[in-house]
C-alpha cells in the first residue's frame, strides 16, 4: 500500500476509538466510531480477491447500519431530555436501540453472523485488529451508559452469545472462524457482567485482548489457517507449539492460567447477586468452547512421532520472530496469581 495512505489509515485507526473513549458528547462518540469503521475498511479490502471484497461489504454494511442506529438513539434521547451527555442516557426507547446497535457493532449473539465471515475473508493481522482494537469503542460506550442499560436484555444477549459462541465453533475446521466464535463467547461473558460490575468487565476485556493477541500472533507465525494444518506445526517451532496449547487452555478458562481469573470472578459476582441459574448456565456453556479449544490442541499434539501425520508438510518460509509474542504469551499464561493486584489497579 501507498505509504501516505497507510500512515493515514493507521493514524485514524488509532484515533477513532480514542476519540470515542475520551468523548462526553454523543456526536463526538459517533464521529470516533465512523472514523474507525472507515479506517479499517481499506485494510480489509487490501487484497483484491473476491473473498476480501465480500468481507469488506459485509463489515461495512453492518457497521454503517449500527452507527446510524446509535446516532438515531442519541437524537431520540436528546429530544426527550434536551441534552447530549453520554452518561445520562435515561430514555428507555433510546437505551434499547443503543444496546441493539452496540450488539450489532460488537457481534453479539442474535447479530453475530457477520463476524466469522469477515474474519475468514481477511488476513490474520486485520482479523487481530477487528477482534481486539475495534471492540474497544463500543465496549467503552457500553461502560459509559452502564447505569441506564436494561439488565434483562443484556443478560439475554450475554447468554445467547455464550451459547452461540460455543455451539458455532464445534464443527468448524477454519481457525479464524473458531477464533471469531471464541470472541463471541468471551463478549457474552463481558456483557453478562457489565451492569453488575463494569470493573470486572474491563478486567475480562483486558485478559481477552491479551489471550486473543497471543493466539492470533501464534497463528500468523505458524502460518496455519485450518485445524488440519496444525498437525505439522510442531515441525516448525516445537516450543511455541507447547505454549500455544497453554494459551488455548487459558482461553478456555482452566484454573492455573490467566483465563480462569475473569470466569472465576464473574461467577462469584453472579452468585453474589443471587443469580445461580445464570451462573450455572454460563459455566456449563463454556464447556462447549472448551471442546473446540481441546480439538485444536489435540490436532497440534497428537501427531508427534512415532505416529505419522496425515497432512502434507507445508512449504517453509523464513519466519520473522515477533518480538511482542513473548510478553503476550507470558501474560496470557501466568497472570492468575496477581489477581488481587489487578483488581486493585482497576
Amino acid at each position: 500500500m501507498n505509504p501516505h495512505a497507510s500512515m493515514i489509515i493507521t493514524l485514524s485507526l488509532i484515533m477513532g476509538p480514542l476519540i470515542t473513549i475520551s468523548s462526553n458528547h454523543w456526536i463526538l462518540a459517533w464521529t470516533g466510531l465512523e472514523i474507525s469503521t472507515l479506517a479499517i475498511t481499506p485494510l480489509i479490502a487490501k487484497q483484491h480477491h473476491p473473498r476480501a471484497i465480500e468481507a469488506t461489504i459485509k463489515y461495512f454494511l453492518t457497521q454503517a447500519t449500527a452507527s446510524t442506529l446509535i446516532l438515531s438513539s442519541s437524537i431520540i434521547n436528546a429530544w426527550t431530555l434536551g441534552q447530549w451527555d453520554i452518561t445520562q442516557m435515561s430514555n428507555n426507547t433510546s437505551c434499547a436501540i443503543l444496546t441493539t446497535a452496540l450488539a450489532i457493532k460488537l457481534g453479539l449473539a442474535p447479530f453475530h453472523f457477520w463476524l466469522p465471515e469477515v474474519l475468514q475473508g481477511t488476513s490474520t493481522t486485520t482479523a487481530l485488529i477487528l477482534t481486539t482494537w475495534q471492540k474497544l469503542a463500543p465496549l467503552s460506550l457500553l461502560v459509559m451508559t452502564t447505569q441506564s442499560l436494561n439488565t434483562p436484555l443484556l443478560l439475554l444477549l450475554g447468554l445467547m452469545s455464550t451459547l452461540v459462541g460455543g455451539w458455532g465453533g464445534l464443527n468448524q475446521p477454519q481457525l479464524r472462524k473458531i477464533m471469531a466464535f471464541s470472541s463471541i463467547a468471551h463478549l457474552g461473558w463481558m456483557i453478562t457482567i457489565i451492569t453488575f460490575s463494569p470493573k470486572l468487565m474491563l478486567l475480562t476485556f483486558y485478559t481477552y485482548i491479551t489471550m486473543t493477541t497471543a493466539m492470533f500472533l501464534m497463528i500468523k507465525l505458524l502460518e496455519t489457517n485450518k485445524i488440519s494444518m496444525m498437525m505439522t506445526s510442531w515441525t516448525k517451532l516445537p516450543t511455541l507449539n507447547t505454549i500455544m496449547i497453554l494459551i488455548l487452555m487459558s482461553l478456555a478458562g482452566l484454573p492455573p492460567l490467566t483465563g480462569f481469573m475473569p470466569k472465576w470472578l464473574i461467577l462469584q459476582e453472579l452468585t453474589k447477586q443471587h443469580m445461580f441459574i445464570i451462573a450455572t448456565m454460563m459455566a456449563l456453556l463454556s464447556l462447549l468452547s472448551l471442546f473446540f479449544y481441546l480439538r485444536i490442541s489435540y490436532c497440534a499434539t497428537i501427531t508427534l512421532p512415532p505416529n505419522s501425520t496425515n497432512y502434507l508438510q507445508q512449504w517453509r518460509h523464513k519466519t520473522n520472530q515477533k518480538p511482542y509474542l513473548a510478553p503476550m504469551a507470558t501474560l496470557s499464561i501466568t497472570l492468575l496469581p496477581i489477581t488481587p493486584t489487578l483488581l486493585t489497579l482497576l
Binding site: A45, E54, I57, F60
Partner: peptide, 8 residues
Amino acid sequence: LLVASSRT
C-alpha cells in the same frame, strides 16, 4: 465497494 464487488 460497489465498484469493487462488480469487478470481483
